[in-house]
Amino acid sequence: MNAATLPETVESGAAGRRRRGRTAGRSTARLVVTEAKLFVRDPLGSFFAVIFPAALLLVLGSAMPGFDEPSADIGGRKPVEFYLPIILAMAIGTVALVSLLNVLAADREKGVLRRLSTTPVSPVRLLVAQLAVNVAALLVGSALALLGGWLVFGIEARPNVPGLLAAFVLGSASMVALALLLAAFTPTSRAAMGIGSLVYYPMLFAAGVWTPGPMMPEAVRRVADFTPLGAASQALQDTWTGDWPQPLHLAVLVGCTALFGALAAKLFRWS
């Protein structure tokens, strides 16, 4: 017998497929649990993703006088009301460009992906687990911010729920695609940090974190409309007050997701 003979333990047929299916389910569950533990053990990452949005809202609310009182300047609305959707946009940007980008870059730099690629598990599944954990963190962080706005400032909103969900999902997708693209060409986690913040702060600006709502100059807004987080922020603000998102913003979000996603898929390397 020589090497050309198939080993007897290679299972074919239904039994082998079933066993492999079970292994795949079990390993995916373990990967998600492991990534969740690693996420929680990274104090900076979990703070920024989960606590920061609510904390920022509360800090701004207690520092800025009149934050939760109707203001004549902005049509009798409370500043906190139009700040909340901006905070949601910021939460999306933070999870994508800080938490997710860092974990992706660190794993590749340390050879974690390379180690994983010696096992039957595809690194794609690690990526999926990391996405799942980061999306969960984003949902918790956003929920905490909404809860804070409601409990502390008594915000009453009549959002356009389907529109708001669409804006949130598309905004997240475009920013995750951007993070994957950045991770594709940042060789080290230090470089990822650097490039991440180079992109992060302008994105926050475009989202209106420093010039919320009507305070954003018209010229800036016209540029911001074409950035993923700017478009997401505008769409979130529109839907928050019950309107439908503007087609331009949805188109920008879909376009960014497709473009960044395709480039990332082309450029991403596992080691």
Binding site: E11, R19, R20, R22, T23, R26, S27, A29, R30, L31, T34, K37, L38, R41, D42, A106, D107, K110, G111, V112, R114, R115, T118, T119, P120, V121
Partner: peptide, 26 residues
């Protein structure tokens, strides 16, 4: 395979690594 150079995530515990990797195999 034991690679000449390989790493695991910094905050992963010994038992977790073994438990995780064992789940990859039938």
């Amino acid at each position: 395979i034991q690679l000449q150079e390989s790493h695991l995530p910094d905050r992963l515990k010994v038992w977790e690594a073994l438990d995780l990797y064992s789940s990859f195999y039938p």
